[in-house]
Write a protein that binds this DNA or RNA. Structure first.
Lengths: 190, 190
DNA sequence: AATATAAGCGAATATATATTCATTTTAAAG
DNA sequence: CTTTAAAATGAATATATATTCGCTTATATT
């Protein structure tokens, strides 16, 4: 007896991510994915019921992974601003290093592939971010505006930064990163 | 003899926009578009050589239109901040009223449909925005950071705001709009 | 009003893509 | 080492989609 190979799922996911970032969700076929992953097309159907399931599983995996990474090293003991910056940098680093995920998630949001259930579950994972904003507001450090609005601002700006960085191939050096963070912080601060 | 009908092109474009916003670029077929536009599938090919040309033409039209609208009412005579806010509001209004275009443009960017040529031309239309930032910097009103970075911030935050508004169906009332603008301005101001 | 010319049509065709399945390969268990 | 069950394969099939084309309809021009 042979066991399903977890490594193969990762191969499949990475192949799909690479291809979607390059050609968009509309331009990627099951055949493309299998070729890029170095397996036969039929094998995809051993791991996933079909294209829908594959895309939904990948979407969920990306979302979970990204939330996990964001709070790495976060400790509520340390003061808000450095703690916030740590998270901000975690997210930025992650998105720069996993550019394909940024594009994939963006493309997915308006595709018929993603089910409402998958969407819902992704949304629920945002809770820690709301809690973070809440802390900053309780400490009177950031504006008393709707947390959703503030998060929208932070994430929207960062996503666009990551995309612009990727296309322009301007290297995002330390100075540029700090400038970007200052823009973000000045926007938020009370 | 019968002439090609400009109104029909608009019908086709609007149908395509509606469908892409709903189902994503990957989920929209030529058949869908013709049905939604109320014409026969073959007629699409009277107006466009094929799907590629249709998508590229729509992309270019959206981009031109949005730049046009942005600077409506702008007058370099009036002080920078209200002039800037006017433009910011123009863009926000436009994006809220033409949500399908926001999604369509986003989806297109990473699709194999859009040619490099189309992409290039879209980029060139950004010149007036760079000029605007330049003015603000010369007047010492906004930060002396790279203009591309500042624009990225403004546009990224706004796009996300528009999307979040649409999904959450939180109405963006005057107070919320002003809060959002303040976030933006506080980020930029010197 | 007659004619010419292009738009408009949609079923038929060509093409691309997802999915299945009979067969082969792999590796765990006895 | 043999057996066995599941994974892996990829050509074959089913399905979906883009595109074409012979024909009809509309309307400018004479």
């Amino acid at each position: 007896m042979k066991r399903k190979d977890d490594k193969k799922i990762i191969q499949i996911f990475q192949a799909a991510l690479r291809l979607v970032a390059e050609k968009g969700l509309s331009g990627v076929t099951m055949g493309d994915i299998s070729r890029e992953a170095g397996i036969a097309t039929g094998t995809l159907y051993v791991y996933f019921k079909g294209k829908d399931e594959l895309i939904n599983a990948l979407f969920a995996a990306c979302r979970e992974n990204s939330v996990q990474v964001s709070f790495k090293g976060y400790n509520p003991q340390i003061p808000f601003k450095p703690g916030f910056k740590n998270i901000w940098l975690n997210i930025l680093r992650y998105k720069l290093q996993h550019f394909e995920e940024v594009i994939f998630m963006e493309q997915c949001y308006h595709s018929p592939f993603i089910t409402n259930d998958t969407r819902e579950k992704a949304l629920q994972l945002s809770a820690p971010f709301y809690a973070l904003i809440d802390r900053g507001q309780k400490e009177q450090l950031i504006k008393q505006a709707d947390a959703g609005l503030l998060l929208t601002f932070i994430i929207g700006a960062m996503n666009e930064l990551v995309k612009q960085t990727h296309y322009s191939s301007i290297t995002l050096n330390r100075s540029r990163i700090n400038t970007a963070f200052d823009l973000c912080w000045d926007a938020l601060k009370a």
